[in-house]
């Protein structure tokens, strides 16, 4: 495993023209932080060159800070190498947007819909970015930190008696 991480580190180093990529030790699996603008290109490279065949999940996080409030964390898994890698992208506070990975892994379809529904992160280029759990006309994103636990009164329109 350690060799593989070294290989990935070497591949995405500044010597190969990649800027702003860092590796974090906070998690019990290797985690790579990637800048937003070259994120999709890096994902395609990981899939094709490092055999990351599966995108198993997307974790959306609301850090509730002034800058770079949102994060999108991708849980990648390689079936051939039996290796798990996490990728983190930090997103704007006002307008969280990032490229969709639907064209890279099909499982991004529902995972991105869930993140949009719960956290309000927009995935650019997603073919069908509908809400996954809440109703389509719902205006809020419940997993954001400023959304109250008990919900907002009157936010759901009920049929008249």
């Amino acid at each position: 495993m350690a060799e593989l991480i070294e290989k990935i580190k070497e591949k995405f180093s500044s010597a190969n023209g990649f800027e702003g990529i860092s590796f974090s030790e906070n998690l019990n699996y290797p985690m790579m932080e990637v800048p937003k603008d070259r994120f999709r290109e890096i994902c395609v490279m990981l899939r094709d060159e490092f055999q990351m065949e599966q995108l198993r999940d997307i974790v959306s996080v609301d850090r509730f800070t002034k800058n770079e409030r949102f994060e999108s964390i991708y849980n990648l898994y390689s079936l051939t190498l039996k290796f798990r890698l996490f990728i983190k992208v930090k997103l704007d506070s006002k307008n969280p947007e990032v490229d969709s990975l639907y064209a890279v892994w099909k499982s991004a379809d529902w995972a991105e819909r869930e993140a949009w529904d719960m956290m309000g992160i927009r995935y650019l280029g997603h073919p069908d970015l509908r809400r996954l759990y809440m109703m389509e006309e719902y205006e809020y994103h419940p997993l954001r930190k400023d959304y109250p636990l008990m919900g907002l009164p009157g936010s759901v329109t009920l049929p008249k008696k």
């Binding site: 998690l27 999940d57 974790v59 964390i73």
Partner: peptide, 30 residues
């Protein structure tokens, strides 16, 4: 600190991704 643990449940990979901010509650649990 962040942690991810997946188990092979009867349906497939059941994973929990937890983020802590030092308090007694998880900051985020996916």
């Amino acid at each position: 600190v962040e942690a991810y643990q997946a188990i092979e449940s009867s349906k497939g990979e059941l994973g929990f991704y937890a983020i802590s901010d030092g308090k007694g509650y998880p900051f985020r649990l996916k």
